[in-house]
Simulated assay, not measured.
Amino acid sequence: MRQHPYDHQWRERCERQQRKRAQRFSRDREWRWRARHRWHQRWHRHHRQFKHSLGARLIAVFIVLACASSAILWWSEDSAAGLLWAVPALLLVTGLAFGAIRHMVQPLHALALGAEAFRRGQFSHRVPVIHRDEIGDLALRFNQMAADIQAMLDGKRALLLAVSHELRSPLTRARLHAEMVGEGESRDALLDELAQMRDLITALLESERLGSGHQALQLSDCDLAELAREQARPGVDLHVEPDLPLLKLDRPRAQLLLRNLVNNALRHNDAARGAVQVGLSRAGNGVRISVRDFGPGVPADALPNLGQAFYRPDAARTRGEGGVGLGLCLCRLVAQAHGGRLELRNAEPGFEAAVTLR
């Protein structure tokens, strides 16, 4: 049978229409899939923003509390004994809301503890990140700030140690050359200035070593009564309680502590009023060291600053008379490294420094 000439064109037209319908269906399906995907993305974005937003969660808690309270009051109006169960239900809902809000703001307490640790100089402390919200972001910034400050302090400490070490060699050579100079006042003054520079460098090195706290110590059994007797000299009255316990201390640092306290007291003591009083007494499982002079004391506004590096209450004093302000700073660092605390107060008359070591 002969094929009609239009049959081929009709089939091609049908096939084109089917392809167009298939393409249109594919485009519609792709458009629906994209719309659904955008909706899911938008929902997840809003959910993530809500989850990471403290304000949004607080608003949600208040809304739920208001709706629950309104529903309880509305249902309680339909029964005569509605108040009997409405009041406990309201208290329960309020307690649940309070617990939820307290859980949300709990990281604020951790931030307060972290700020207190940073104030004490404990920059190794890290604030725990409890929630990934605004408070969590603030905790991360706190931790980054502490890490940056610690890195800055470590760099400063390393630089100061390197400079102090490098200064020792030329200072030693300068002292050797000064000793070859002929006898006279100039030679004595030069040697005295070089000795002060040597003591300053030694104090700087020791203060930086003690900056690492307990890690800088080499502990061994130490008899503080024996170390105190080494400080016996004219103008010093020693009072040592018998049978004091042996303590695990760094002996050279304990010697440095006693020597600086006694020298500081002798420097400011008024001998006409009495000798410097050095006392050792038992304090629980430890030993309390007290050193008192009968000098003019310290102005009340200067007491909080004593023990800071290079601080001197009387700015008019020269280095030869009053030191450079590192003696009490070293005493404070030694006490802190051993787990103690340097206590400074005016004794009226005089001044007293005390440390309890365990």
Score class of each variant (00 low, 15 high):
residue 206 E to P: 00
residue 207 S to E: 15
residue 207 S to L: 15
residue 207 S to W: 15
residue 207 S to H: 14
residue 208 E to V: 06
residue 208 E to H: 10
residue 209 R to W: 12
residue 210 L to T: 05
residue 210 L to V: 04
residue 210 L to F: 03
residue 212 S to G: 05
residue 213 G to R: 02
residue 213 G to E: 01
residue 213 G to I: 00
residue 214 H to V: 07
residue 215 Q to S: 14
residue 215 Q to A: 14
residue 215 Q to N: 14
residue 215 Q to E: 15
residue 216 A to H: 02
residue 217 L to K: 10
residue 218 Q to N: 10
residue 218 Q to G: 07
residue 218 Q to A: 11
residue 219 L to M: 02
residue 219 L to K: 02
residue 221 D to E: 15
residue 222 C to E: 06
residue 222 C to P: 07
residue 222 C to R: 07
residue 222 C to N: 08
residue 223 D to Q: 07
residue 223 D to Y: 03
residue 223 D to I: 04
residue 224 L to S: 06
residue 224 L to M: 09
residue 224 L to K: 06
residue 224 L to I: 04
residue 225 A to S: 12
residue 226 E to Q: 14
residue 226 E to V: 07
residue 227 L to M: 06
residue 227 L to T: 04
residue 228 A to G: 08
residue 228 A to C: 10
residue 228 A to V: 04
residue 229 R to W: 08
residue 230 E to H: 03
residue 230 E to R: 06
residue 230 E to W: 00
residue 232 A to K: 12
residue 232 A to V: 06
residue 233 R to E: 15
residue 233 R to S: 14
residue 233 R to K: 13
residue 234 P to R: 13
residue 235 G to L: 01
residue 235 G to F: 02
residue 236 V to W: 09
residue 236 V to M: 09
residue 237 D to Y: 05
residue 237 D to L: 10
residue 238 L to W: 04
residue 238 L to K: 03
residue 238 L to M: 06
residue 238 L to C: 03
residue 239 H to W: 03
residue 239 H to D: 13
residue 240 V to M: 11
residue 240 V to L: 13
residue 241 E to C: 09
residue 241 E to D: 11
residue 241 E to N: 06
residue 242 P to S: 09
residue 243 D to I: 00
residue 245 P to A: 13
residue 245 P to N: 13
residue 245 P to R: 08
residue 246 L to S: 02
residue 246 L to G: 01
residue 248 K to Q: 15
residue 248 K to G: 10
residue 249 L to R: 14
residue 249 L to Y: 09
residue 249 L to A: 11
residue 250 D to F: 00
residue 250 D to Q: 01
residue 251 R to N: 11
residue 252 P to W: 00
residue 252 P to D: 00
residue 252 P to G: 00
residue 254 A to Y: 00
residue 255 Q to R: 15
residue 255 Q to T: 09
residue 255 Q to P: 02
residue 256 L to T: 10
residue 256 L to K: 11
residue 256 L to Y: 08
residue 257 L to C: 05
residue 259 R to T: 08
residue 259 R to D: 07
residue 259 R to L: 10
residue 259 R to C: 07
residue 259 R to Y: 06
residue 261 L to R: 12
residue 261 L to Q: 11
residue 262 V to H: 07
residue 263 N to D: 13
residue 264 N to M: 03
residue 264 N to L: 03
residue 264 N to D: 12
residue 264 N to I: 01
residue 264 N to S: 11
residue 265 A to I: 09
residue 265 A to E: 08
residue 265 A to D: 08
residue 265 A to H: 11
residue 266 L to P: 02
residue 266 L to T: 00
residue 267 R to C: 02
residue 267 R to E: 00
residue 268 H to T: 04
residue 269 N to G: 03
residue 269 N to C: 06
residue 270 D to G: 04
residue 270 D to F: 03
residue 270 D to L: 07
residue 271 A to P: 13
residue 271 A to F: 02
residue 271 A to V: 05
residue 271 A to K: 08
residue 271 A to R: 12
residue 272 A to G: 04
residue 273 R to K: 15
residue 274 G to R: 14
residue 275 A to Y: 02
residue 275 A to S: 13
residue 276 V to C: 09
residue 276 V to T: 09
